[in-house]
Simulated scan of single mutants.
Amino acid sequence: MGSLFEELEAREATARTRVEELEAVLAEVSGRLKAAREGLERLRIARETVAEVLAEMTPEKPGAAVDTDRSSPVDSAASAYAGAERRVIGVLTVPNWQPGMGAEVLPRVYRDIVEVVADAPGPIRAKQIVPRIGLPAETGKIEGTRAKLKRLVDRGWLDEDTPGMFAPARRRGGVSPNFR
């Protein structure tokens, strides 16, 4: 009978080892689950905070909003996003151009691009803009800048009459955007 008890002890030892391995895996997965839940909670809080901020914004006129508590100018991009918390899931970093809206509502890199295009003597290519905004003239940087230029064209900030050639947007009635 000794061999039966030895066999049972060996199986018990194997089962104990397997239980310990699974407990270690469970502890690791539990840690990852906790971290994922914390990340989810941070995103939920961020979304709610952005929705609250956007809900409080009231556009006075495009490009200029006023904080009624302090009677001072607030982020001029506010009017471009007012009421957006119920219509969009993401954030529109490059708003559609509207009369009276200046380049100051654009993120810094887009503002730099618009200013370089405005200062150019004529239509300009992406590869000519890249070094002027402080980036190395590498293919990836040129393509990234080209994508930004296309976005600026789509949103009414620039024109692209000839493929790959970008110029300041022409406005009806001779009105052009305020680049500075």
Rank of each mutant, 00 (worst) to 15 (best):
P99K: 09
D67Q: 13
P95C: 00
A80Q: 09
V53L: 04
V53S: 06
M101K: 03
Q128V: 01
E23C: 10
A10F: 14
R86D: 09
V109D: 00
G164I: 07
P168C: 07
I113F: 01
V94H: 01
A35S: 12
V105C: 14
V50C: 10
V19D: 03
V66P: 01
T139K: 13
E7R: 12
A65W: 06
I129A: 03
E60A: 09
R87F: 06
G144E: 03
V25I: 11
N178A: 07
G90Q: 14
E143M: 00
A126Y: 00
V53Y: 03
R86S: 11
A147W: 08
V94T: 12
G156Y: 06
T93I: 09
A51T: 06
I142K: 00
R108V: 01
F179C: 08
M165C: 05
P95N: 04
S76F: 11
R87D: 11
I133L: 00
I133D: 02
V105N: 03
R146V: 01
L4N: 08
L135V: 02
T49P: 00
R47G: 03
F5P: 05
T68V: 10
K34W: 05
L43F: 13
A13S: 13
G173C: 06
E41W: 06
E28R: 11
E6D: 15
R170H: 15
R18D: 04
G63A: 07
R18P: 04
D67F: 02
E6H: 08
